[in-house]
Every structure is written in C-alpha cells, then in structure tokens.
C-alpha cells in the first residue's frame, strides 16, 4: 500500500505521524481514505465537492498530480504520495 507523507500542519490530526499508509489505486481513493481514517483533515485536503483543495499540492513520487491525471492519477504499491500546503504570501 502506498505511503502518504503528511505536512506538519496535518500531523496533529494523525497522532503526530509524518507518514501513514492508506490503501487505494488512485490519488482520489487514497485522499478520501485518508480523510475517512483521520476526520480532522476533512476540508483541508479535499473540498466539499471532492476536488483537490487549491491550497494543497499533491505529488506521486516527484510529480505534481495536477500535471498528471489529478485525483484519477494511478498509484502503485511502492509509490509515495506527498501532501504539501501551498506556502505563499505578500
């Protein structure tokens, strides 16, 4: 099952863990499973409509899923899914 790397802002919702294992064959399945397993993350990763939150970047290994197939991007067992917040300001 793929590893999911969490940013510091989400770790308090996962008992402080930096990496969790979530089953799923696509990014969407994995992120929905993540929020089901750790409900504190609801609204921080996916929007109410089920789309990727615009202030979050998700990578499969080294590739931004927005440049792949978004939530439909396939994920294999040895892959690492990384979630990172957009860090921006003025």
């Amino acid at each position: 099952m793929p590893d999911v790397r969490l940013p510091t802002v989400l770790r308090p919702h996962a008992q402080g863990k930096s990496t969790v294992v979530v089953p799923g064959d696509t990014v969407g399945e994995i992120l929905r499973g993540l929020v089901e397993g750790y409900p504190g993350m609801a609204g921080q990763v996916l929007t109410e409509d089920g789309t990727l939150h615009r202030f979050v970047n998700v990578y499969v290994n080294d590739d931004d899923v927005r440049y792949l197939e978004g939530l439909d991007t396939k994920v294999a067992g040895g892959d690492t899914v990384s979630i990172l917040p957009a860090v921006a300001g003025g």
């Binding site: 202030f55 917040p85 957009a86 003025g90």
Partner: peptide
C-alpha cells in the same frame, strides 16, 4: 496576504 495564507 501573509496572514490570510499562513497555513500552519
């Protein structure tokens, strides 16, 4: 803008 977008 910094405050509005501070994630953590």
């Amino acid at each position: 803008t910094d405050v509005a977008q501070a994630p953590d």
